[in-house]
Amino acid sequence: MKKYRVSLSIWFVFEMVALSLNISTKNLFYLFNFTYIGTCVGVGTSLMSSKNKYARNFV
């Protein structure tokens, strides 16, 4: 679980940006867009940390 700490923190940063922009502008686009991007980058970095062969292709 220790090796996924960076991936979770990246995802958390994207979610915080998404929530703050969604609350300040009342626009759902930011919530969906930043959640999508943060999830893909977070999963990709976790795949890279577990030495998966196709991690870069996923991201």
Rank of each mutant, 00 (worst) to 15 (best):
F29L: 02
G44H: 00
T39G: 01
K53Q: 03
T39D: 01
F32T: 14
S49R: 11
N33M: 14
F12E: 07
K51D: 09
S9R: 10
M1V: 02
C40K: 03
G42P: 04
S50P: 06
F32L: 11
L28R: 05
V59K: 05
K53S: 00
C40F: 02
F34W: 03
L31D: 04
Y30W: 06
F14K: 05
S46P: 03
K53P: 01
M16H: 10
L31E: 05
S9M: 13
Y36A: 01
V6D: 12
L47R: 02
G42E: 02
F12L: 15
C40P: 03
S20E: 12
S24A: 15
S9Q: 08
T45W: 07
F12H: 10
S49F: 00
F34I: 01
S46E: 12
R5I: 15
S49G: 04
T45N: 14
T35Q: 00
S49P: 02
G38D: 00
F29Q: 02
N57K: 15
G38W: 02
V59D: 05
Y30V: 08
F29I: 09
K26T: 13
L47Q: 07
S46Q: 12
S7E: 04
Y54Q: 10
V17W: 13
K2Y: 09
K2L: 10
T39Q: 04
K53H: 07
K2W: 10
W11T: 08
F29E: 07
V17S: 08
G42C: 03
M16Q: 10
F34S: 00
L31F: 08
N22D: 08
K3R: 03
S9F: 15
T25Y: 14
S46M: 04
F58S: 04
I23K: 12
W11S: 10
L47I: 00
V17I: 15
S9A: 12
T25W: 03
E15Y: 14
W11K: 08
V6T: 06
C40S: 11
A55R: 03
T25L: 09
Y30R: 04
G42I: 06
Y4W: 06
Y4V: 01
R56M: 13
F14R: 03
V43R: 03
V41K: 05
V6H: 09
F58D: 06
S20W: 06
L28E: 11
L28Y: 11
T45D: 09
F12T: 12
F14A: 12
S24N: 15
I10S: 05
S50D: 09
N57F: 08
F58Q: 11
S50L: 01
